[in-house]
Simulated scan of single mutants.
Amino acid sequence: MAHYYFDLKNGMTERDHAGRDLDNDAQAIAEAYAIADEISSRPPANREHARHVCVVHENGHEVMRVPVITRMQRVSAAGAKKIS
């Protein structure tokens, strides 16, 4: 089991100081997707930068960045795919 942190990046970094113990990177990535989905309905603090949830292993290694996609962006992307 390892400890993972889930930092929010949006031009600036909002550090996760608590983190969570998880079995492996795959579980941490799944958790990051859940966090990104949860915060997608909140307006971004900085609209000039894309938001990402960064999965950081306890050793400091960045495992993955998961984009935070707003509900409006999802609707726009779905509409764009139908037109193509």
Rank of each mutant, 00 (worst) to 15 (best):
L8A: 04
P67H: 08
E31V: 06
M1N: 12
S40W: 01
T13S: 03
H3Y: 08
S41R: 07
N59K: 05
G79L: 14
P67F: 05
C54G: 03
I35M: 10
V75E: 14
T70P: 00
S40I: 00
F6C: 09
D23F: 09
P43I: 06
R71A: 06
A32I: 11
D7L: 01
A18G: 03
V53D: 06
A26N: 13
M72T: 09
I69K: 12
S40V: 01
G11L: 08
I35N: 05
I69G: 03
S41Q: 11
D37I: 00
V66I: 15
Y33W: 11
E14I: 04
I69R: 12
A18V: 14
E38M: 11
D7I: 04
M12L: 10
N59G: 03
V63K: 10
D21Q: 12
V53C: 04
R65H: 13
E14S: 02
D25N: 15
P67G: 07
I83D: 05
H52A: 04
A30L: 11
R74M: 11
R51E: 14
G11V: 02
G60T: 07
E38G: 04
E62C: 10
S41D: 09
S76Y: 03
R20A: 14
A34L: 05
L22P: 09
E14Y: 10
R51L: 05
S40F: 02
D37V: 00
F6Y: 15
D16R: 10
H49A: 09
D25W: 12
P67T: 04
V55M: 12
Y33C: 06
A32Y: 05
D7A: 07
L8E: 08
L22R: 14
G19R: 11
M72C: 00
N59C: 07
R51A: 07
E48N: 14
V66K: 11
H3S: 02
Y33E: 12
N24F: 08
R20T: 06
K81M: 03
G79E: 09
G19Q: 08
D37T: 04
A32H: 09
H61C: 02
H3R: 13
H61N: 13
A36L: 00
A80P: 00
A30H: 11
E14V: 07
A34F: 01
R20H: 12
H49R: 05
I69Y: 06
I35V: 15
E58T: 12
R47W: 08
H52Y: 15
D25E: 15
H61P: 00
K81Q: 03
D25P: 14
Y4K: 07
R51H: 09
E62H: 03
D25L: 06
R47F: 10
N59M: 03
T70D: 06
H17M: 13
R15M: 10
C54M: 14
L22H: 12
R20M: 15
Q73A: 15
K81A: 09
A50I: 01
E58P: 02
I69P: 06
G60S: 10
N10E: 15
N46T: 04
E14G: 01
I29Q: 08
A80H: 08
G79S: 05
R15P: 01
A32E: 05
V53T: 05
R71N: 11
A32N: 08
M72I: 02
H61D: 13
